[in-house]
Design a protein around this nucleic acid. Sequence first.
DNA 1: TGCGCTCACTCAAGCGCTTTAGCTCAGCAC
DNA 2: GTGCTGAGCTAAAGCGCTTGAGTGAGCGCA
Lengths: 348, 348
Amino acid sequence: MPGKRPAARRPTMKDIARRAGVSESAVSFALNDRPGVSEVTRDRVRRVAEQLGWRPSTAARALSGEGAATVGFVLARPAHTLGVDSFFLQLVSGIQEVLARRHLGLLFQVAADVEDECAVYRRWWAEHRVDGVLVVDPRTDDPRPDLLDELGLPAVVIGGAPDERHPGLSTVWADDAGAMASLVDGLHTLGHRRIAHIAGLPDLAHTERRIRALRAEAGRRGLTEVQSVTTDYSDAEGEAVTRRVLRSSAPPTALIYDNDVMAVAGVAAAAGLGFSVPADVSVVAWEDSALCRMVKPWLSALSRDSVEFGRTAATELVSLLDGGPARTVRVPVPRLIERDSTGPARAS
Amino acid sequence: MPGKRPAARRPTMKDIARRAGVSESAVSFALNDRPGVSEVTRDRVRRVAEQLGWRPSTAARALSGEGAATVGFVLARPAHTLGVDSFFLQLVSGIQEVLARRHLGLLFQVAADVEDECAVYRRWWAEHRVDGVLVVDPRTDDPRPDLLDELGLPAVVIGGAPDERHPGLSTVWADDAGAMASLVDGLHTLGHRRIAHIAGLPDLAHTERRIRALRAEAGRRGLTEVQSVTTDYSDAEGEAVTRRVLRSSAPPTALIYDNDVMAVAGVAAAAGLGFSVPADVSVVAWEDSALCRMVKPWLSALSRDSVEFGRTAATELVSLLDGGPARTVRVPVPRLIERDSTGPARAS
DNA sequence: TGCGCTCACTCAAGCGCTTTAGCTCAGCAC
DNA sequence: GTGCTGAGCTAAAGCGCTTGAGTGAGCGCA
């Protein structure tokens, strides 16, 4: 008897039809809220379906042209940077919340690089696996929008800048430039004149945006000793770059890190070099998480609601799947949470 | 012209059949390596398929009884504990690696609790969405194995103890008891007699295993001042519990944390109370990540290869899907990485 | 009474694939 | 010549659902 697989049979519409004494088509109409059946029949069918625990087979649905009831999400980052990043799990959990409500599945895949990611989209499309995708980490010179256009796959770009060249794509983005501007403004007010920006991956669109915004703000204020350095987001590079910039003859008095991991690593590196935070150097993390309260001093951070970000993106995709128009949605500008790592610049 | 969706048509087997001048059945045989076609035809068909960029429609495949080519993964943890946890992303990336090679999709879902998770399995099963699932966070008194048995859904339990009651399930697990034993042994050798174990979620099977193992080890050595306290894995509880245990009249000289996040929070809490690590109290984290090297002192940690763990689990599931037998696989015992947070007990 | 119309429903085809049964023809033994 | 075999292929059904084209009853209206 052991090892026996009962494998209870799944009920189908045919079963419902039989029990309700109507045709399969009637069942289909009834369950999909289509006209063509009386309210009485509809109710009866619904009751039978419920009672049988019926659920539509996604395979059959997909095959008859209804789409796969699934959206795709590819993460293309080097494996080692996937580590201690709270952003993606939060984002995904927000996405889920919205998708689950519509019984849409989330097909998740990690890819080695963007090229790989494109291959995944092609495969998903050819295999009829997804109805749309959520694209993260948009890049400067990104091949993905063109591809998705070509495939006719509805998509929402998360974190991209508005893009007129692809009117089919929705975009959900945060105003990095604005955030950077107010950040620089705050630091400037505190007397900081030498600022280093330890940025993320060089090819990412938002990295680019932040770098440009910083340069613009510096220009406007006549600050000449302002720099951005790109990294791979890892604690290792955060530490290495911090060490390098602080060792210069006129070290920065404020450090802006593009994520929390590097900021934490950076604080440790600064301490190692004898710099005290915030007395000698102020630190701000672009991304708030528990991490920021795990080190002394607690890190001031730009906080955004990543879960909400995910919700927004998913909502846009759902609307796209419903035939809605592509849109560009801006989520709220991240808010600076002032903690103990920022203070007035040391008088030079 | 803008907004036009070209929506290139997907090639089907019919297209291949036409171009290759054979019937659809022949194409099916050829492409699935089934007997019934000559090598010459097989080659020709394959070439045409390749040239057309054909990929089988998963929907059609699933409908004709081949399974959905997808496995499911549900994460049922309170949203706020999802934050800074490196384990799951690593695990998933290991899983992916194996699944991708077989062109299996990973359907991912976050659920509120185990009950919710069960509902997801039922739905997936009824909707024909997945061929098997990976179950994480096994619990004492877990409803999931029974359910999966009932549904006849192949499954691999990740982190569970071997379970004879469900011969249909595969299990991939680490020997927590052994790891705990050697940990206690090490601490005992260093002179520690009062040990506090800040454990994870109380219902998880591995939490239970570790607690029991600690108690057993303490019993064997006649240590009476050894305790385990369960938490929700969050930095907040890690900090609170640390504070509480260190405030007692005879505070522990060694702290074992069930994850890296709590360990880091704990070190900060200890420092706040005037305890120096490792002089006054030693700290070990059960889970190694970049976090452990982001604080001073660097944390000693039990390190396991989570990516490999994922690979192993996925491999087992694939074998199950191929009709292989259910198995129980043990992954290597986590290894203690000694850094700066452990040392001899202060002479009392 | 008969015409046309609507409503509620049924029939049957079709989505892209697998699979079983069957068909054809060459090769061979007798 | 007949009969058998097996290799190589085709025809057709079926998976569970949707959908457009019927069908037939009931009704209003001239």
